[in-house]
Design a binder for these strands. Structure first.
Lengths: 241, 241
DNA sequence: GCAAAAGTGTTGGAAATACACCCATGT
DNA sequence: ACATGGGTGTATTTCCAACACTTTTGC
């Protein structure tokens, strides 16, 4: 066993931080929305000279007195005013040169919002909903972070009921299916899709119908989170790779 | 939109780091092993006065010139000498008071090693393989980190072929099943288990047999990672929660 | 020859897939 | 009346779960 195996004591830690320099830590939020049957991401124009004109995720350095989750919520609140949303940590990114200002490690969070709840002014060219599949280049390593969060979302949405955060509280099954098709990039059989969701027994018929559609209006449902929590039995067991 | 919505420029970032203090960043490794049909974790005795006698994960502050992944590999190398292992990032932990010395955020990594490759001396009371289910209390928030990594492992092992890293290169199906049973905490039907693995067509018969067993010896297999990579077709699509 | 684990197939039920027609509404 | 998407059922296939006996080896 090498010599330096034991954990460091407080003094050693502080000395090392003093000597070798601290690292900066930031949180970056990938904010997904769903509109016009497309998956969108909320991006902000970068100020940094290195990335002039490029778009970046919403992020900020964390304060020493807030938790990581706390910082993520703060960023969303400060920049969009949105309070009620789904938010989850995805991954930390720590390439040495990922930020031009300093060595800054970032923790990526994924959040899902209903675009109705936050619409930047149309003339606001700093903060904007971008169609995911049109995004090619971004500031920093943000494209890489975005890709990781998108993959995370694709997987996650098949195993947990996140998708509803992207829809209005009342939605038609068509809207729900469009959402899944947009996120997964596949097309699904309508009858089997309905069967699947109805068999879960988590959608509640609101008794209302779509309005202003040029065809037979669909029923509107809402997702019963309460019932879901009750049911959240582990679904052991299935090795499959 | 609030006033401070735009991303900060380099100068502002450096000023903020200067003014509010940097944060420390560490990496902690949860090193799982498998021995005597039990899942084990490699822990080290904590030096810190606050946690005297408690056990902790293997971790260290990261250096400003290494990546997160790099730091994780370094820690494993420095403390155990193990080079060849499975390692993956699990989650960042950022409670404000999680470390008594300073505000230190940590990124947890999960790694899987074959215990044959690293056996601390029996009289070494600083570094030790602990049976997972006997661990109750730990230093820092390490119990919480360990729990998160264990849950991650349970899920991950059902979807990806990690388990083999915990076994000798050549193993019997019984060993493999014991491993899954230990990690998942369930007991499995032997015939279905075999069928499952053989149908994946990723195990190769080495032609060898177990030795020194007081019963009919089983065949030894090894896992063909190469074949797995080839096959790694996406298995779309299954909404299920 | 006995103890102990290896090895092996079949069957029934559940879930996933594929697929086509009638219905309600707006224009 | 017609265009558009809403709503529904069935047959087929695939996957999973349950289950018992014979074989090989060490002692």
């Amino acid at each position: 066993m090498p010599a330096n195996a034991r954990p460091k004591d407080v003094k050693t830690i502080l000395e090392q931080l003093e000597r070798e320099g601290y690292n900066g830590i930031s949180v970056d939020c990938v904010i997904f929305g769903f509109d016009e049957n497309e998956l969108k991401v909320l991006l902000i124009k970068s100020d940094l000279a290195n990335f002039e004109g490029k778009w970046s995720l919403l992020g900020d350095l964390i304060d020493s007195r807030e938790t990581l989750d706390g910082a993520a919520y703060r960023i969303l609140r400060e920049r969009t005013g949105i309070e009620d949303l789904y938010l989850e940590q995805v991954k930390a990114f720590g390439e040495v040169d990922r930020h031009p200002a300093a060595r800054i490690i970032t923790v990526a969070y994924c959040s899902l919002v209903n675009v109705q709840h936050y619409q930047p002014r149309t003339h606001d060219n700093e903060l904007h909903w971008h169609t995911l599949k049109h995004i090619t280049e971004m500031a920093f390593d943000h494209k890489q972070i975005l890709d990781a969060c998108y993959e995370w979302l694709q997987k996650r949405i098949q195993e947990h009921p996140l998708g509803f955060s992207l829809l209005p509280r009342k939605f038609s099954l068509r809207e729900l299916q469009n959402l899944y098709e947009a996120i997964l990039g596949v097309s699904l059989d309508r009858r089997n899709f309905r069967k699947k969701f109805f068999s879960m027994d988590l959608l509640e018929d609101t008794g209302e119908l779509e309005t202003n559609v040029p065809h037979r209006p669909g029923k509107l449902y809402h997702f019963n989170y309460e019932k879901y929590r009750m049911k959240e039995r582990k679904k052991w067991f299935g090795i499959d790779f």
